[in-house]
Design a protein around this nucleic acid. Structure first.
Length: 192
DNA sequence: AAGCGCTCCAACCGCGTTCTC
DNA sequence: AGAGAACGCGGTTGGAGCGCT
């Protein structure tokens, strides 16, 4: 049988030091990802494999795009969340250079609040009670347009997401035209 | 300047799935 | 086939940083 993932004792927790980061980067550059079980010992780290994986995937990977999310990215997250729910890894997979943790954090701190401010329940994109009447008049004005890509602004677009009832949320979604076929991951940048 | 509350995000935790023996 | 470890994911938490009073 395999041994436990990591010895609970003798492992560091909390924030990573620069030295630990460098050790992890050096090791992965030499040996590549994988085998997280043995990586900490081999790399000279007092961390459990799980922690190393998380640090690498969410922070140290060279292909990560740090910094603020663009409007297009935000829009895509909202669309994908409407389609996939809280499948953050799937959503992140559609956003090059973004991690599931990053997307999840961004959703919880920015987008969720934005939608709530617009009177939209971020969980199912339904209107909350207080803004139903306002939205209804908006919707009636726009009932003839059926696609997202018709030059409408962000607010109106969000209202369209909110138009679904619990029973037909998916059918009321605009045609997202998202290619969700599984593609092989892009090759890792060549390492020295 | 100090205290407080809020925001943001890195990291941890727990659980389900996959893999290995 | 079944037990148990490894992996991957989503939810949650802790604390640093910031603004306000």
């Amino acid at each position: 049988m395999r041994k436990p993932c990591c010895e609970k004792k003798e492992t560091n927790k909390g924030a990573w030091s620069k030295l630990e980061d460098q050790k992890l980067i050096d090791y992965i550059q030499k040996h590549g990802e994988g085998c997280w079980r043995y990586l900490p010992q081999a790399a000279g780290l007092l961390r459990c494999g799980k922690s190393c994986r998380l640090r690498w995937v969410n922070y140290l990977r060279p292909d990560l795009k740090r910094g603020n999310f663009g409007e297009d990215e935000e829009e895509l997250i909202i669309k994908l969340h409407a389609l996939l729910g809280n499948r953050w890894s799937l959503i992140a997979g559609r956003l090059p250079g973004r991690t599931d943790n990053e997307v999840k954090n961004y959703w919880n701190t920015h987008i969720k609040r934005k939608l709530l401010q617009k009177g939209i329940d971020p969980n199912n994109r339904q209107l909350v009670l207080s803004s139903i009447s306002m939205a209804k008049s908006k919707m009636s004005n726009e009932s003839n347009s059926s696609t997202v890509d018709s030059g409408i602004d962000d607010n109106n677009q969000d209202m369209k997401f909110a138009s679904g009832s619990e029973s037909n949320t998916m059918s009321s979604l605009p045609d997202l035209n998202l290619d969700l076929t599984i593609a092989p991951p892009p090759p890792l940048p060549l390492m020295e």
